[in-house]
């Protein structure tokens, strides 16, 4: 009997081993190596004899105004797009949360933008909004939207078009879990539709809202492909997100030390609030 338990105990670890090795290779090693790089003057020219730099990379990043601008832009962009996507996603989910003909087909079509690669979406909009040959420019009577004043709103609109379906998907699933009995009881009590919404629906789907908000905020904060293809982070550094800043630092400037220092600073800055946020979300779901 005891031998059986011991074997089962060992088996657990044996079965976990492949995953542990994978994690070690794909996550642990790169993370440790990033820390190592961040303390060295790691540029392409001296990659194999890189001198120790101490905290120099961190200090240079922290005193770089471009870094702070990119942090600000990423937070601003992520907050705006997640709020709009949550609002629209929730509204559309409420709209579809009833019986209607062709619902499955419409929802399937609505989810299509999510399947497009963000880089491709950037290329598509670069063409559609081109002021010489762009279809949208032509339809809008020659107004060019790829100018300084419209650039950020254009990026927000594209993100919203692509990722509102994602927020919808999560929130629609959430709405499916709300018991109908609650609405029936409220109807007997004479509750209005807005009371139903604010006192039943919103509290019931709150954990889903938190998850959707978290996922969309994190994903938008990391935005890279679409913005890079469309604006290159410009004009100047106006649309340089943190990912673009780090990418340019690593692969255009070739300064891997500073790029990894910037990545680690972001990791540190977001670890604590994220852990708290996830805990709260889990509490909500478990409740």
């Amino acid at each position: 009997m005891q031998q059986g338990i011991s074997l089962e105990h060992k088996m657990k670890y044996i079965l976990l081993l492949p995953l542990a090795v994978m994690l070690l290779l794909l996550i642990t090693f790169p993370t440790i190596y990033s820390w190592y790089l961040s303390f060295h003057r790691a540029v392409l020219a001296n990659y194999f004899e890189m001198p120790f730099a101490g905290l120099e990379n961190y200090l240079r990043v922290l005193t770089d105004s471009d870094f702070w601008h990119s942090v600000w832009f990423s937070i601003y962009y992520a907050t705006i797009v997640s709020l709009i996507e949550l609002f629209l996603g929730f509204s559309i989910a409420l709209f579809f949360n009833r019986k209607m003909p062709g619902k499955t087909l419409i929802i399937s079509l609505f989810l299509l933008p999510m399947m497009v690669s963000p880089a491709l979406l950037g290329v598509m909009f670069r063409l559609l909004l081109n002021d010489s040959v762009g279809l949208f420019t032509y339809l809008l009577g020659g107004v060019s939207f790829l100018t300084s004043e419209y650039l950020i709103p254009v990026l927000i609109v594209i993100d919203v078009l692509q990722w509102t379906p994602f927020a919808f998907l999560i929130l629609y699933s959430g709405l499916q879990t709300v018991p109908v009995e609650l609405y029936e009881a409220a109807a007997i009590d004479g509750a209005s539709p807005s009371q139903n919404l604010f006192y039943i629906t919103v509290p019931a789907v709150a954990p889903f809202l938190v998850i959707a908000a978290l996922l969309r905020w994190l994903d938008s904060f990391k935005v890279f492909d679409m913005v890079f293809v469309l604006t290159g982070g410009g004009p100047g550094i106006m649309t340089t997100s943190l990912s673009i800043y780090i990418y340019k630092m690593a692969f255009q400037t070739g300064d891997f030390g500073r790029a990894t220092a910037a990545s680690i600073l972001v990791l540190l800055a977001f670890s604590m609030p994220l852990v708290a946020f996830v805990r709260r979300a889990r509490r909500g779901i478990n409740a």
């Binding site: 410009g234 004009p235 100047g236 550094i237 106006m238 070739g254």
Partner: peptide, 23 residues
């Protein structure tokens, strides 16, 4: 030397900012 692209990157950033009327 090995910083040509870096210099070009700085130039492109400010040429773009000047053209966009930001600076």
């Amino acid at each position: 030397k090995d910083k040509t692209v870096d210099v070009l990157r700085v130039l492109a950033k400010y040429v773009s900012a000047v053209s966009g009327g930001q600076i």
